[in-house]
């Protein structure tokens, strides 16, 4: 799934140190871009429900807000730190790593 930009924010957690970045495909290595596009495909990202929280609020859990922008659409999801879906978990961890790297290098 092609995208033009991904906006990522992780807030909350005990430390509440905000991790945030705007990722463009050109920021990523070929391998990372492929992995990300595959994940978005497998999740059918534009059709995911906006709220992917587990129903109750656990103190000090992370809150993630992810907006994927493409030529013809954009979609935002809000997830908490305990998604029960492994693919979502994979996406959150990948984006968090990429965002951290971008924060450090900018």
């Amino acid at each position: 799934m092609e995208f033009t930009q991904i906006k990522f924010e992780r807030s909350g957690g005990f430390a509440n140190i905000r991790i945030t970045a705007e990722l463009n495909p050109r920021d990523l290595s070929g391998e990372q871009a492929i992995a990300l596009k595959e994940l978005l495909d497998e999740l059918d990202f534009p059709k995911l429900p906006t709220k992917l929280t587990s129903g109750e609020t656990i103190p000090d859990e992370f809150i993630y807000t992810i907006t994927v922008e493409a030529e013809k659409w954009q979609h935002t999801i809000i997830a908490d730190g305990a998604p029960k879906d492994a693919k979502i978990q994979e996406l959150l961890e990948l984006l968090n790593r990429l965002a951290r790297k971008k924060m450090r290098n900018s």
Binding site: F14, A15, I58, D60
Partner: peptide, 10 residues
Amino acid sequence: TGYDNAFWDG
């Protein structure tokens, strides 16, 4: 791994 957090899960 790489879990930079602590929480009370109820």
